[in-house]
Amino acid sequence: MTGKCLVLPGYAVCSHYTYLVDTIPYQQLPFSGQFSIFEVEHFHSELTTQPHRHHDFQIVWLTRASGEHIVDFVSYGLEDNMIFLLGPGQVHQLLDASIFGFSVTFTEEFYFSNRHDRESLYDFTTLFDSSQAYAPIRVSHPAAANFSQLIALMRNELSVQLEGSNSSVIKHYLNAFLLLVERERKHNVANSPALQHHDARIVKLRQLVEKHFRQEHKADFYAQHFALTSKRLNEITREVLGKTVTDMVHDRLVLEAKRQLAFSHRSVKEICYELGFEDPAYFSRFFRNHTASSPHEFREAMFK
């Protein structure tokens, strides 16, 4: 299974989007608090088949599945024993899907509630880093058995009603779960050496880009956070990712522009200014250079 990018013209998913909303909606999941596990086959809302997002980190392990899952304009065919990792704000939707499995949802505050946690627990943010291209993870049968045991242990701890007594135990079970997901991800990319290389600076850079991409488009801004020159930081990103810092920022700007064009009523000029561009004409040229279509053409193709 490989992801198939949805490109213009003839945008493959355009017929599925039947209305515009002013903002991309957040789906309310069936839990309150900072950690939850639920069976995905028992949860459905009107937003499930529409583009939506979540506030928290979500691991979706599909034990049995068919249909289509679209994540940020890329379509993936669903298969049994597949994991999707969704970060806060990531836009996705399920189409013609029959799914069984589990959703593990948690906040960063739950996992890293103190300094000791940050020093002792696996840094899951590296797992959710999409700068090396998003892709679901195929789960091997031995790993699936381990995941099942950890799911059962975490659900059992959730059933313990002694307030505050179970959060530490759950965090360590979740830590083990995330480590196993990371191991499966590495197995998935075993034939792609470029994706195996990990550099903590790249993870931090990705986080900085996510935080500042609307206001800061230049490599110099990001390089100063590492006490490096932009030339040296570009050498690092080229080695690890095959792209420059500017490429990373531009990729994020294009993705956000697509989201706003597809799922909001904002005008092209409004989107232009929101993303830190001063000239709408320049923004339109920038978008065309990266997508082979103008902002207006992209929006029209989504709904024709």
Rank of each mutant, 00 (worst) to 15 (best):
D251M: 00
H16K: 13
F128P: 00
I236S: 08
S167T: 13
E163W: 00
S293C: 10
H296W: 08
A133V: 13
H69M: 03
L195T: 00
D251K: 06
P9M: 15
G242K: 10
L158G: 11
M302R: 15
H197T: 09
S66K: 15
E39F: 00
A223F: 05
E274R: 14
G89T: 12
L233S: 09
V74R: 11
P136E: 03
F84R: 08
G101W: 04
L208W: 08
S75E: 06
A257R: 06
R118C: 13
Y19A: 15
E274F: 10
A257M: 11
K218W: 05
G77P: 03
L241T: 08
R183G: 06
P51H: 14
Y122N: 09
I271K: 11
E300W: 01
L180E: 15
F112E: 02
E274G: 10
V181N: 07
R285C: 01
F31D: 03
V13N: 15
Y19N: 14
N114R: 09
P142W: 05
P136T: 05
Q260G: 04
F124L: 04
L162V: 15
T23F: 05
N191W: 03
V104I: 15
V21H: 12
F38S: 04
P280W: 01
A190K: 12
I70T: 07
H290Y: 07
Q132R: 07
E39G: 03
S230Q: 15
T246R: 09
E68Q: 11
V189K: 01
E39K: 13
F263D: 01
R155M: 11
A281Q: 11
